Simulated assay, not measured.
Amino acid sequence: MKETDLYEPCKTLLESQGFEVKAEILKTDITAIKDNYIVIVELKTTISLKLIYQAIDRQRIADKVYVALPKKVIGSRRGSAKDFMNLLKRLEIGLIAVGTHAEVIIETFGFDLKKSINSSKKQKEKLIKEFSLRKSQSNIGGTSGKVMTHYKERVIEVAKYLYLSGEKSPKEITLYTGIKDVPNILTKNYYKWFVRVSRGIYTLTDVGRSEMEPYFLDDMIYE
C-alpha cells in the first residue's frame, strides 16, 4: 500500500463528518476545514519518529491532528506498535486506520497550547488562505514532488488563454481571466511558459504550448 492509497478513504471519512477536504496544502497531506475548525492528517505507510515530528509540527496550526496508517501496520502485535499508540495518546495526536475504509482508532481533543498556536498565527492564516483559494482537486494526499498550488492555477489560466488567443497584452489577459497579478506572473515566468514578442505583448513559448496541449486534447473547455 502506498501513501496515496490512504488518501481517498481518509477523505471520505472526513467528508462524511461535514468537512471540506483538500490535499497538499502547504505540505500537509490532508487538510480538512469545517466552520474554521482545522483538521490535518499525515499519511504514512510505516511507523517512524519522523511521522511523530510531522504531527507535532502540524499541531501548531491545526485544531486537531491525526496520523493515518495501513490497518495491518496498526494491527501488529509487536511492542513498537503499542508503544507508538501510547505515545500518540500522550501527545494528543489521533490515529486513523486505513483498510477498505478509514476509521478513527485514537481520538484526540485538540492541541491546547495556545502560546504555540498564537506564535504560528501567520502560518495558520496562510494555510486557510491557500485552502480557500485553491480550486483544483487534482492533488492526492501523500504525493511526492510537484503539486498544484493556487499560484500555479493562475499561471495555467493565463497560459490557456494565450494558447487560444495567440499574442495578448497583460491588460487584455487580466480583463479576460480576472487575474489581477498577470504582469507579475508574466515577468516572473517561473515555469518558462511565456515570452515577450514586442513591447507589452506576450505569447507562449514552445514549452508553454506543450504544457497546455493536454488541457485541450482532453476536450477541456476554457471558460
Rank of each mutant, 00 (worst) to 15 (best):
V73F: 00
V39H: 04
I56H: 00
I52N: 01
R199C: 03
L69A: 10
D63T: 08
M148T: 14
E92K: 14
I140N: 03
A62E: 05
E153L: 09
L43K: 13
T108E: 13
I179D: 09
V155Q: 09
K192A: 12
L162R: 06
V67D: 07
K64G: 07
I117A: 06
S76N: 12
L95V: 13
P183I: 04
K121M: 04
S210Q: 14
Q17D: 04
T45R: 12
G94N: 02
L14C: 05
V147Y: 07
F19A: 01
F84I: 06
R60M: 08
L204D: 03
F216Q: 06
Q54L: 09
G79S: 12
F131W: 05
L175Q: 15
E20C: 07
K168R: 14
I47D: 09
V197G: 01
T177K: 09
K82V: 09
T187F: 06
P170R: 01
A62Q: 07
K50E: 15
S76F: 04
K89A: 01
Y176H: 12
K44L: 12
L91R: 03
S210P: 00
A23P: 09
R154S: 10
V21K: 03
N189C: 03
G94F: 05
M85Q: 15
G99Q: 00
G94Y: 00
D181K: 03
L204R: 01
V39I: 15
Y163L: 02
S169E: 00
N118W: 11
I38D: 01
K82I: 10
S119T: 11
K115I: 13
D35H: 06
G18P: 02
L14F: 04
Y202Q: 08
V98M: 04
K11N: 08
L162C: 05
I40A: 08
Y176R: 14
D219F: 13
D29N: 10
E213M: 10
I56V: 15
A32R: 00
L91N: 06
V39F: 07
S210C: 08
K192Y: 05
E172A: 13
K122C: 01
D57R: 09
Y163Q: 01
K89D: 01
D181C: 02
A81G: 00
S119N: 14
T100L: 11
N189H: 01
A81M: 00
R77H: 12
D35P: 03
K124Q: 15
N139W: 07
